[in-house]
């Protein structure tokens, strides 16, 4: 439906008009389509990720939120048969250009996964490994401490850095994964439902942490949890599935706007729980 896509684009530009002038974009996604084999999972996405803000991607299951997120640091390359068309600009470079190495993209755009997945190594090595393989030449102990402090985990683990990452609780493991991501000094952190496997208390801690991380990093977070998107993000993109089962960005704007005066009925239905 070309009309609707055109409309989405206008929506973005209209939202952009009301943004403060100092907003700079970290990533610009233009006419992006993502495929698994012949199946188009995400179609015609146009989206801007603003620097040092938190962007939430919301939408029902299977609407392509995670696919979109994983397309932003080329993690989709690892899925057999997956491919992405269109442009994803990061600092003016298309990360899908031929001369761009996905390894470098992933160092600068880190990712935190749905289920905490620490390495079966010590807490210290969990944090240090990423920096080590990327050729970090500075003081490793300082880097590890700094990353763990930023991830609000230092006080809990400083006396047992040599213990296995698996000895931590679920919430601590997820913060360890965040620390590990921070340690390679990315500019953008992508989070794929980072709290869906955690209890409410651990969830709250991660949300607080995300707010603190906003000072230093640009964050894109996929969430199923409407309250989380409303509480924790500055911008929200609502994705929905079309008749052909391909996901599409229905509406994008400031979170406050999306949740109080959505322009689309689809969006309103979803956020008020009248979906489907």
């Amino acid at each position: 439906m070309p009309d609707e896509n055109a409309f989405v684009r206008t929506t973005i530009s209209e939202s952009a008009k009301v943004m403060p002038a100092q907003l700079t974009s970290a990533m610009e996604i233009r006419s992006m389509n993502a495929y698994y084999g012949s199946f188009r999972a995400v179609k015609e996405v146009d989206l801007t990720i603003y620097d040092h803000y938190i962007t939430a991607l919301i939408g029902s299951s299977g609407c392509g939120k995670s696919t979109l997120l994983r397309a932003l640091n080329r993690m989709n390359d690892l899925v057999p048969g997956a491919r992405v068309e269109g442009d994803v600009h990061f600092h003016g470079t298309n990360i899908y250009a031929d001369d761009v190495d996905p390894v470098e993209v992933r160092r600068r755009i880190g990712m935190v996964f749905q289920k905490p997945n620490p390495f079966p190594k010590s807490i210290y090595d969990n944090v240090a490994w990423g920096a080590r393989v990327n050729g970090y030449r500075g003081n490793m102990a300082e880097l590890v401490e700094g990353a763990l402090r930023q991830a609000a985990l230092w006080d809990e683990v400083k006396d047992k850095l040599d213990q296995s990452g698996y000895s931590l609780s679920g919430g601590q493991q997820q913060r360890l994964c965040i620390a590990r991501t921070i340690a390679v000094k990315p500019e953008i952190i992508l989070m794929d439902e980072p709290t869906s496997a955690l209890d409410p208390v651990a969830t709250l801690r991660i949300e607080e942490l995300i707010q603190e991380l906003k000072e230093r990093y640009t964050i894109v977070i996929v969430t199923h949890n409407m309250q989380q998107a409303a509480r924790a993000s500055d911008f929200t993109a609502f994705l929905n599935m079309d008749e052909d089962r391909a996901g599409r960005v229905v509406e994008f704007g400031r979170t406050a706007d999306i949740f109080t005066k959505p322009e689309h009925e689809e969006t309103e239905n979803y956020i008020t729980g009248r979906f489907g």
Binding site: N73, M75, L78, V103, E104, R106, R107, R108, G110, M111, F113, N117, P118, F119, W129, G130, V133, N134, C177, R180, T181, V184
Partner: peptide, 9 residues
């Protein structure tokens, strides 16, 4: 995934 996401080859 975790390893690759950290920018490891």
């Amino acid at each position: 995934s975790a390893g690759m996401a950290l920018g490891a080859s």
